[in-house]
Design a protein around this nucleic acid. Structure first.
Length: 112
DNA sequence: ATTTTGACCGTGC
DNA sequence: CGCACGGCCAAAA
């Protein structure tokens, strides 16, 4: 079978595509809920992405790298933990906001 | 099947 | 800057 883009809108459910995308965010980078939604083929489904993040408890999913628009921290089951995890990856945060957001914002370039 | 609920986002004040 | 409001869409109830 020919290979497919996991993030292609035609491949799997929205949920599956979202999870696949979030797993691709490299350490030291972040993506917004809206970014993930758009890459998953639903530019306006940012809120749905948040809903998915809130329910899935997969340990292999670096959901702390999904942040709010403009570099806001966004939600998390344990906000202080989210901040710490990001800082441990070299991301600077001040007052619930990522510094140099544009430089650490992940763009899914080089799709297979 | 229908309603409610969010780890959201832009706008407007 | 902060806050309220409406739109949005998948998941859960």
């Amino acid at each position: 079978m020919m290979p497919r883009l996991l993030e292609s809108p035609a491949c799997g459910t929205f949920r599956a595509r979202v999870l696949a995308l979030v797993r691709r965010i490299p350490s030291g980078f972040v993506a917004t809920y809206g970014d993930i939604a758009a890459l998953a083929g639903r530019p306006r489904a940012c809120r749905a992405v948040g809903a998915i993040m809130s329910t899935c408890r997969l340990p292999t999913l670096p959901c702390h790298r999904v942040v709010g628009a403009g570099g806001q921290l966004g939600g998390y089951s344990d906000p202080s933990r989210k901040r710490r995890l990001l800082q441990e990856e070299g991301i600077l945060i001040r007052c619930h906001r990522i510094i140099h957001f544009s430089e650490v914002r992940w763009t899914a370039q080089a799709l297979d």
